[in-house]
Amino acid sequence: MAEIQIRNVAKRFGSYQALHDINLTIADQEFMVLLGASGCGKSTLLRIIAGLETQTTGEVWIGGRRIDHLPPKDRGIAMVFQNYAVFPHLTVFENIGFGLRMQKLRNDEVTRRVTRTAELMHIEQLLTRYSGELSGGQRQRVAVARALAMEPDVILMDEPLSNLDALLRLEMRAELKGVLAESNTTAIYVTHDQVEAMSLADRISVMHQGRIVQAASPVEVYRDPAERFVAGFIGNPPMNFLPASNHGNGRWAVADQVFAGPDVSAAALEFAIRPEDLRPADDGLEARVRLVEPLGAHLLLTCDVAGTMFRAILDSDMTVRAGDQLKLAAMPDRIRWFDPDTSLSVPTAA
C-alpha cells in the first residue's frame, strides 16, 4: 500500500511563496497528474515528495509512514527526469541496474530484473550501448526502465515527455499508461500539457500560483471546473465567459437573453459555456462571426457576443462566413456559473 498524503505543505524561496498550504491525498496505485502552467509550483511539489527539495512547513506521508525528513533513497520512490538524466559513463544495462546494485542485490537478480524491465520498455537490444549512442526517445525509455526496475512504491515523473517530438510523445504516452497500469505503482506525473494530463490521469490536480485549485477526475475537471481559472485553462479553446446580471428568482440576464441559473442573491455572476456546447438555433445569443477556422470534422468560429470574444465549435457541414450573424443556443445542462469576486464555481442547485 502506498497512499501518499501531503499535509499542509508550503514552500518559500526567500520572499517568494512557491507553495501555499498544499493538502492532497493520492490513493494507492492511483495515477495523479499535477497540471499547471510553468511556475505554478507543480515541479516544486514533486521535488518535495522526492526529497530533492525541503518543504518550509508541512508533512509528507507515503504508505502510512512520514517520510519528509528522510533522504530520497529511503522514501521508496523512483523518479524520471525531464532531461532523462541517463548516466553517460554507464551502459544502458548498468543504468537500469544502478539502483539494484545500490541495494546490493545478487548479480543474477540484477540481470533478471534489468532484462525484464528492458523488455517491458522494448530496449533489450540497447543494453550494451552508452547514452551518447541513443536517441532522445531511447534515453527516455532507459530513464523509465531505470525507475521501474527499482519496483518502487511510488514513481514520480517530471515532464518526462516534453523533450520528445510530437509523434514519439503520443507513442510513449500510450506505452507509459499501459506499463504503469500493470506495475501497480502509485504515480505522480507533472506536466503542463493538458491533453497529456487528460489521457493519462486517474485524477488531475490543477495547480495555479502555488495552490491546488481542483483535484478531480479528468472529465470532472473538464465539465465542472471548480474555479474560473480551471475553466479558462482546460480545454482548447477554453470556456467562454459572459457577464450575467441577476434577473430575480434564479434567472440571469446574459447578453439580452435570460437563462435559468443559481438562485443566489448576488447582483452579478459569470456565465460560462464550452465552445462545443453551443448549437446554431433560431433563438439564442446574438453572435457576429469574426473568423472561421475549418478543423476537418468541425468549424472553429471566433465570434463577438455583446462585445466579448466568444468561440464556438460547430459541425463542419455548416456554411458560415466571417461577418455573418448567428444565433447560438447553449445546452442548458452544460452552462456553468462563477462568482466574479471569489472566482469559485456557483452550483445551479444552490
Binding site: 522526492a50 526529497g51 533522504p71 530520497p72 523512483a78 538524466a85 548516466f87 539502483g99
Partner: peptide, 12 residues
C-alpha cells in the same frame, strides 16, 4: 539531475 537521479536510486 544526474546527481539527483542517483539520490533517488539509493545513493547518499
Amino acid at each position: 539531475e544526474l546527481e539527483e537521479a542517483a539520490w533517488t536510486l539509493g545513493c547518499t
